[in-house]
Write a protein that binds this DNA or RNA. Structure first.
Lengths: 335, 335
DNA sequence: CTGAAAGCGCTAACAA
DNA sequence: TTGTTAGCGCTTTCAG
């Protein structure tokens, strides 16, 4: 086995508790001994064993990050930002993928919770009831979902959706469609509510098509329904769905933005690289990841006494090339 | 604090060691007591504390997974597969992102190694020397890099590269370019070697442009050089670079596949969704992730006695829409 | 088959 | 400022 605190104590001629202090409360140790211990520790390649430390302190310095699908391009920037932020705070993060399965999600939380100080739940599919039961075991922070009493990071997709609907209206579209996401998705509900209200205000006719898988297949599968709906502008649950839809429309001889305008959500890499470049709603995933970690750490440190924080992050419409004035095939791109 | 083994022991009227056995060596406990303990444990919601267990057994049942950039679409499928496989084996995985920084990579390994039974290094940028020093601390398995004495999963990109070069030759291209990747990348070296050999065999003139950032920016930045090179066929380090290159070529009024044929590597989501759909070399990332976990677990269980395994996974050329016969603008797609 | 006891590596009172 | 002493939750001999 590796070098322990005892080896360092022996080699530097002090008691283990002094070595311990050197690392966890350096100011309680004289500069002289501290330096000696540090030198010896360095020479021996000593690293405190965090698992052992966790046993006495009750703090593992680990976080759990649970996402529905790592391969969905929405998540990687969030994961990346979260683990970077965590590392900055001297925390490590377990990443687990639920495959969009609520049961697996719950099981993962229960498996992980003994090993972490807190869990970050991203767009969870779990029912609020279950989440509230689980929170007795471990602090949670939730991203893109509202759970009473929990700190939350929300990406205010409604904002972007309103802008998107207005954008479509300004381009002269009269009938629009919304390809919503999986049931249980907070984001999808928000989009629905915002789109309904905004369509109403702009006097647009809105068709809601749902539910759809949050993948390119979902979009592809919805192409027929969209084509049959008479809508000329489509707002999709995410970029992948939008891209799949464009593909499916293409197969039917319909062009984007020539025949239909399509808008995605996420501002993901595939959308940015697509041709036509996808008009989309930004989701500040990296910022959300960082913020969620900070809120989680705050919750961890506050114990049960802390008041939950609600962070609302702005989203924006980014107009690119997949939207265009209605009914004028070949018309120039909007300025 | 949560419910411990002691609570279960008390509530079921047995000694803690019996409870312990019930979970870690059930066959040593009579069916009757076992059931009683299990029932009580269930009722109390008891979960063994893995950190405490690790202290005595020396096994954390955790793995570390270190990648250069989570946001690079090459990695998410690998991460997803690895953590799924690990969970299957009752392991959890820490995911850490090095931002392509060798120093950070080393630091992460050292921070993590006390908490994990083994580390999965994906396309590491670390020098072999450092890796060999570190392996004294913790078992490693390496993906897409050869390190003497370590179990390794290699995606045999050379195979795909040869097919790609032959494909280009068959399409009538005479001058081709290779946009290689970052220095220190094993994959890039392999591509270089294979491309050189294959170009030679096919009588093609090969220009190597390097190094390039493994991102769309890298491809974008290389567009001028590619345009100036006189090559009509380009093989890129990965799909992102290829997509960036296509973009940059476009800005210069050059079309793909009309004027130039472009091939990527990875078969990533953005490449599949791009228009033209990218001709690319598959990288079996999911299979690699699963296999790497199994090799790592084997190494963990074998201790120092095990012989390292070398797994070579096949790669293939997938011809899609970004390649076309040379010099015949507007010619039909190849069958 | 079960209990007792020691100890994994570390921290946290408490004394000195 | 440092050493002493007790554990944290669990496994693992060793007896019984």
């Amino acid at each position: 086995m590796a070098v322990t605190i005892r080896d360092v104590a022996r080699a530097s001629g002090v008691h283990v508790s002094t070595v311990s202090r050197t690392f966890s409360a350096p100011q309680l140790v004289s500069a002289e001994t501290r330096n000696r211990v540090l030198t010896v520790a360095e020479e021996l390649g000593y690293r405190p064993n965090r698992a052992a430390r966790a046993l006495t302190t009750g703090r593992t310095h680990n976080l759990g990050l649970i996402v529905a699908d790592i391969a969905n391009p929405f998540f990687p920037p969030l994961i990346k930002a979260a683990q970077a932020q965590a590392r900055e705070r001297d925390y490590h993060v377990f990443v687990a993928d639920t495959d969009e399965d609520p049961l697996l999600e719950q099981e993962l939380i229960e498996m992980l919770c003994k090993q972490v100080d807190g869990v970050l739940l991203c767009s969870p599919r779990l029912s609020n009831r279950v989440i509230e039961r689980l929170r007795a075991q471990v602090p949670f922070v939730v991203v893109n979902r509202r759970v009473k009493g929990l700190s939350t990071v929300l990406m205010d997709v409604g904002q972007g959706v309103r802008a998107a609907v207005e954008h479509l209206a300004a381009l002269g579209h009269r009938r629009i469609a919304l390809l919503s996401g999986p049931s249980g998705s907070w984001t999808s509900e928000e989009m629905h509510a915002a789109a309904t209200a905004a369509a109403d205000e702009s006097g647009l006719e809105l068709t809601v098509l749902r539910p759809n898988e949050p993948t390119e297949q979902g979009g592809l599968a919805a192409a027929a329904a969209v084509a049959g709906s008479g809508a000329t502008g489509v707002l999709c649950y995410n970029d992948l769905v939008a891209l799949g839809l464009i593909e499916g429309l293409h197969e039917r001889g319909l062009s984007v933005p020539g025949d239909l305008s399509v808008i995605g959500v996420d501002d993901s890499l595939p959308g940015r690289l697509n041709r036509p470049k996808l008009t989309t709603i930004t989701m500040p995933t990296a910022a959300a990841g960082r913020m969620a970690v900070d809120l989680l750490l705050a919750a961890v440190n506050a114990g049960d006494t802390g008041t939950p924080t609600l962070a609302r992050l702005e989203t924006h419409l980014i107009v690119r090339e997949s939207t265009r004035a209605a009914g004028r095939v070949g018309a120039p791109l909007p300025a």
